[in-house]
């Protein structure tokens, strides 16, 4: 089976608020799938649908070809999940937690877990409630990773963590992906991390899927152009085919679809000079789509 996750026309409302609007995407085996979006865009909601924590109101969610709501054991046994909020029980000790988790997953690799423990510097006898936020995240990562899951899901793994912990998490992502056939889905709003490691990126904005394509395609498709006008423009110039135009006075930045626009020609047409024409960063693409 090629597609690890297949989401079709998924919608979800919470009261009057539509958290997801008709989202369809697929995640194929062996790729790193980055899910980006601002706070409240629906990333966590989508991820919780994959885990069966939310039931699909309309549309369908299939993970490993199975429905996570009706077959939780089969699906969850192959998933490793690191949640955004620290949710490990505080009263447990580190070794107790690992022994508890080991009982659920047949592929638990004790040597790998011990190696990670040593690398992260976690004390086996420490109570989880005494761990700092970064140590807590690392422990959660070990718990999610040590059974070498077919699908590793990280929900905003880096939020509020220092660069060293973030590095550890990215390393785990890379390690997972170099193991044959394993997939990673991670949601983040730290876009430079997403740019580093993702193959595919999906961008959610207020519940709608704005973009879902391989990262290289996205970067090839978008360009950033800096126009300089002779006279100060009172309103943003109307640039045909632009996703977003931003700026003030004489200088305006345009994020546009690279295949449909020839920079110099467009600038001449508007009566401005093209100062800069370069590939847009994921950050700028994201903001452009979010604000459009």
């Amino acid at each position: 089976m090629r597609d690890v996750v297949a989401v079709t026309n998924l919608s979800r409302r919470f009261g009057a608020n539509a958290a997801l609007r008709d989202v369809s995407l697929t995640v194929s085996r062996g790729c790193v799938f980055g899910l980006v979006g601002e706070n409240g865009a629906g990333k966590s909601t989508l991820i919780k649908h994959l885990l069966g924590l939310w039931r699909a109101e309309t549309g369908a969610v299939k993970v490993f070809g199975l429905d996570p709501v009706s077959e939780p054991t089969a699906v969850l046994a192959r998933i490793g999940y690191l949640s955004e909020q620290p949710d490990l029980p505080g009263w447990m000790r580190v070794d107790e937690l690992l022994r508890y988790m080991q009982a659920f997953y047949q592929r638990w690799d004790t040597t790998y877990a011990e190696q990670l423990l040593e690398q992260f510097g976690l004390n086996l006898g420490a109570r989880i409630k005494t761990l700092s936020k970064g140590q807590h995240a690392r422990l959660g990562l070990i718990a999610a990773e040590a059974h070498r899951p077919d699908l590793l899901i990280l929900d905003e793994p880096s939020s509020g963590l220092d660069p060293i912990v973030r590095r550890d998490i990215l390393e785990a992502v890379i390690r997972t992906i170099t193991d044959e056939g394993r997939t990673v889905i991670f949601s983040s709003h730290l876009l430079d991390e997403v740019e580093r490691v993702s193959d595919h990126v999906a961008m959610l904005h207020k519940g709608t899927l704005k973009l879902c394509a391989p990262l290289d395609d996205i970067k090839a498709k978008h360009r950033r152009m800096l126009l300089r006008f002779e006279r100060a423009q009172a309103a943003p110039p109307d640039v045909p085919g632009a996703i977003r135009v931003d700026g003030a006075g004489r200088e305006w930045t345009v994020i546009c679809d690279a295949r449909r626009m020839h920079g110099a020609a467009m600038a001449r047409h508007l009566g401005a000079s093209l100062v800069e024409d370069c590939p847009a960063s994921l950050d700028e693409i994201f903001v452009a789509h979010a604000m459009s």
């Binding site: 790193v32 590095r167 990215l170 390393e171 890379i174 390690r175 992906i177 170099t178 580093r196 490691v197 993702s198 193959d199």
Partner: peptide, 14 residues
Amino acid sequence: SVRKMAEDLLINPN
């Protein structure tokens, strides 16, 4: 190796 380089630099192996 591809794996080591990817892990050291924290980029996608591809």
